[in-house]
């Protein structure tokens, strides 16, 4: 294994310099608080609108900072690579986006993220009287024994949730309704991912885990947490089944169900392969009698330069599809606006 080969200056400056880049690239849509490492929608706070905040470790771009803008998040807090942001950041963001309608925290289920957001919500309520509700995403079916672990991890559904709930908040719906919708999206979504290669955290300088040339890890998390099993590399058709089957059987998704189907790249896999995977996934769903109402293919919740993909399904009724189709204008996702 050779040294680290990355487009960086100093490992210690990766996050702040990337945030400076976002600010420079999207001055029309974003405002970046570099000191607190918060990406804001340029016109936040919006009067009468529930504020939506998410955040987490860096290294998953475009999530979350790339999903800030019209129809999605009002603010995103960036932590160090793969490390949760701290309550000061979330409190500052919460106060800044609260326009009197309250704030929803969208939190992926990782021990550090959950604890830091909990402290921030307690402190914000005590300090400024801001009404804060939280929703925790936990859609990763790879974690089987969730009673004896920190629970299922929040992965692909987080992207779909931020889009759908963002559209609902944009319509001016009240906080409780927005939070209920967020929980409904999480409850109806499931994901499973796999890795072809490891990834290197800049500060660590070496790969998070080792994977041999002819191996893959099925059920991987987005920080290189181990999956269900390590297997010999297989054709895409077989890998698609390894991801789709446990997702479909978990909810379960049944014949006649309509879904939003999301094939996500981990950061190091070309779109050519992601579309090839989507083809396999679509065929499997078709055979199971599951209708794809909408689809999303691309790198949206990544794990640095890891090669691999994840599959997310969200059972979608007319309302969710309508909110999915609503205008969105963020660096990472844009249509209709």
């Amino acid at each position: 294994m050779g040294g680290m080969k990355k487009l960086i200056n100093d490992p210690a400056d990766v996050v702040s310099e990337a945030l400076q880049g976002m600010a420079a690239a999207h001055p029309d849509r974003l405002r970046v608080d570099l000191e607190n490492r918060i990406v804001y929608r340029k016109d936040a706070p919006r009067p009468g609108k529930v504020g939506l905040i998410s955040g987490g470790g860096s290294g998953h771009e475009p999530m979350h900072g790339g999903f800030v803008g019209l129809g999605m998040l009002d603010a995103a807090c960036a932590g160090e690579v793969f490390t949760s942001p701290v309550p000061d950041q979330m409190m500052a963001a919460t106060k800044a986006v609260d326009a009197g309608a309250g704030v929803l925290h969208i939190v992926k289920n990782y021990t550090g993220d959950v604890m830091n957001f909990e402290m921030a919500a307690e402190l914000a309520a005590a300090d400024a009287g801001t009404e804060v509700l939280s929703v925790v995403t936990n859609d990763d079916v790879a974690v089987q024994d969730s009673l004896y672990t920190a629970g299922r991890r929040g992965v692909g559904v987080t992207v779909l949730l931020e889009k759908i709930v963002g559209a609902a908040a944009e319509e001016g719906r009240p906080l409780q309704e927005v939070a209920d919708l967020a929980r409904r999206v999480n409850d109806n979504g499931r994901s499973m991912g796999m890795a072809l290669t490891s990834c290197t955290v800049p500060a660590a300088g070496k790969p998070t885990f080792e994977l041999a040339e002819n191996e893959m890890e099925v059920g991987i998390g987005i920080h290189g947490e181990p999956g269900r099993q390590r297997l010999p590399l297989a054709p895409a058709r077989e890998i698609a089944a390894m991801l789709v089957d446990p997702v479909v059987s978990d909810l379960p998704y049944q014949q006649g169900d309509s879904v939003i189907a999301f094939v996500n790249g981990m950061g190091g896999t070309p779109l050519l392969e992601l579309y090839l995977m989507y083809h396999e996934v679509a065929q499997l769903l078709d055979r199971a009698g599951i209708t794809v109402a909408r689809s999303l293919v691309g790198n949206y919740i990544t794990s640095l330069e890891m090669a691999g993909c994840s599959v997310t399904l969200l059972k979608a009724d007319d309302e969710l599809v309508r909110l999915w189709d609503a205008p969105v204008n963020t660096p990472g996702l844009r249509w209709g606006a």
Binding site: E80, T83, S84, V86, P87, D88, M115, N116, M119
Partner: peptide, 15 residues
């Protein structure tokens, strides 16, 4: 500590 540590250790030792 809550402000500077991050991860799970920040809230735990901070608290």
């Amino acid at each position: 500590l809550v402000s500077k540590v991050g991860g799970a250790s920040g809230p735990l030792y901070g608290t």
